[in-house]
Computed example of a mutant assay.
Amino acid sequence: MSDTRTPAGVHPVDLGDGVHAFFTTGGGGVSPDPWATPAGGGLNLGLNVSDDADRVAVNRSLAAERLGAPVAFATQVHGDRVLELGPAERTRWAAHRPPASAGEADALVTAERGLGLGILVADCVPVLLADPVARVVGVAHAGRNGVLAGVVHRALDTLVARGADPARVRAAIGPAVCGKCYEVPAAMRDEVAAAEPATYATTNEGTPGLDLPAGVVAQLAARGVEATRVKRCTLEDPDLFSHRRASATGTTTGRQAGIIALI
């Protein structure tokens, strides 16, 4: 990363020369309660959480400003579809009124310099991928269904098709609900753990749980990719958005993002 300063609402990660990557937090934006955090106005980047669309547009502009490039987002459906974006998308997302979505997908990949990719989360696992030599980057949204569907594998396959080498790929796994907090029915834990044993967890209450970040680390390791993990639990950290925490109090919450671009 060429800029050592850390703007508000940003948790930076180093994925190599020529790559700018970070995870946003809940603060540093313009959204009021219930999308705000103890750190101040909320940097809610999601359009489907009842926040005002104009405020979300301002927040997305702030995120793009902190990246130094327009940021494209997809309509996420908890699947494994990957969209590849290029010069045409860079033009559209750099417009005064960018589109709301690049299309339905849970992973985005680009080799286009100056085009940011964003993935939205509020407990699920945001994954950033980069091969700084092949000059290709990607993002993936890995919730429970995404881990089962192998969305991270599909994203990595697309990077490889663009010239990436898994041995060179650098990955970062952002804040997500941890295995000690993500309680699920025993049958659900068994189903996911049968597909990826590293997800098997027990909560602080001694009940069945899922550790999705650990599962993503294992999936990447199986492909020869070493990942950096940001160990912040969305449920426990009030400066992060958490769907589970909001649901428990009968309210709504925002969406933070993993964001990456070639610079």
Rank of each mutant, 00 (worst) to 15 (best):
V225F: 01
E104W: 14
R97F: 00
A142E: 01
R162Y: 12
P132F: 13
L120N: 11
A201T: 02
P99K: 12
R223Y: 07
G163H: 14
A105R: 00
P126W: 08
C178W: 11
E89N: 11
L128S: 08
A111S: 15
R97G: 13
G118N: 09
I173Q: 11
R90N: 05
H141R: 07
H153I: 06
A187I: 10
N145Q: 09
V137L: 12
K180M: 13
G224K: 11
R97A: 15
E112I: 15
D157A: 14
T158W: 05
R135F: 14
L108I: 06
G118Y: 11
A221N: 07
S101D: 09
G163F: 15
G224W: 03
S101Q: 13
V177C: 10
G118L: 12
D123E: 03
H141Y: 08
P208R: 08
P208H: 07
A102L: 06
G138V: 12
H96L: 09
A94D: 06
V109W: 06
A149Y: 06
D165M: 05
V160S: 03
G146R: 01
A193V: 04
E226R: 15
L128A: 09
L129I: 11
V184Y: 00
E226P: 12
V109E: 01
G118E: 05
P208G: 07
T199G: 03
E205T: 09
E205W: 08
A100W: 12
R90A: 08
V152I: 07
